[in-house]
């Protein structure tokens, strides 16, 4: 399978980053970047990345199923990740998660019917001092409040 020229260039750089004979090292970054472009680690991505990294598809699958950010099924256009770990919990992260779930009408690791949103209750995302925090795709939203969350979801709803 082919990827965008940018991604191909990134893969090429990746493969040069590791010592000779160590192209397997590119496996996890490749999967992450491929997932960003394709939307999920599809069977086709597994086969392709396995081939490029010189491993078996099973070895790729072992890795994909291990890491929580890699997923075989496509997620929503906006993947809303609400941290409920200790620092966020103490400042209402759990309530924010409930709120998001109610608003979007979906639960943990579910996607809305229109594919716009998916929701995940995530572990610590490294924003403890600016809790509660949310990540939408790779973007951080710090010091969240119920009002800010409503606004955020509404703005994402509007983006064409």
């Amino acid at each position: 399978m082919t990827f965008s020229p940018d991604l191909e260039a990134r893969f090429a750089r990746l493969l040069e980053s590791y010592p000779p004979g160590r192209r397997r090292s590119a496996l996890i970054p490749m999967l992450m970047y491929a997932q960003d472009e394709v939307g999920a680690v599809t069977g086709e991505v597994v086969e392709e990345v396995a081939r490029r990294c010189g491993v078996t598809p099973l070895q790729v699958d072992e890795v994909v199923s291990y890491y929580s950010m890699l997923h075989r099924q496509p997620q929503g256009k906006y993947h809303v990740q609400v941290c409920t770990n200790i620092s966020c919990l103490l400042r209402g992260g759990d309530k924010l998660y409930e709120q998001a779930s109610r608003k979007l009408g979906i639960g943990h690791k579910e996607t809305t019917a229109d594919g716009r949103f998916s929701l995940e209750e995530v572990e610590c995302i490294g924003a403890c001092s600016w809790a509660p925090a949310i990540q939408v795709n790779y973007d951080f939203h710090h010091d969240m409040t119920p009002e800010k969350l409503d606004k955020l979801l509404a703005s994402l709803e509007k983006i064409q």
Binding site: R24, I28, P29, C53, E62, V63, Y67, M69, L70
Partner: peptide
């Protein structure tokens, strides 16, 4: 080098496994 979501990879030897394209 990006990780992909695994607390365990903060442990140094697990991090190295992950750096080598394996489970953490």
């Amino acid at each position: 080098h990006t990780g992909a979501g695994a607390y365990e990879c903060g442990e140094e030897s697990a991090l190295l496994e992950s750096l080598e394209g394996k489970r953490g």
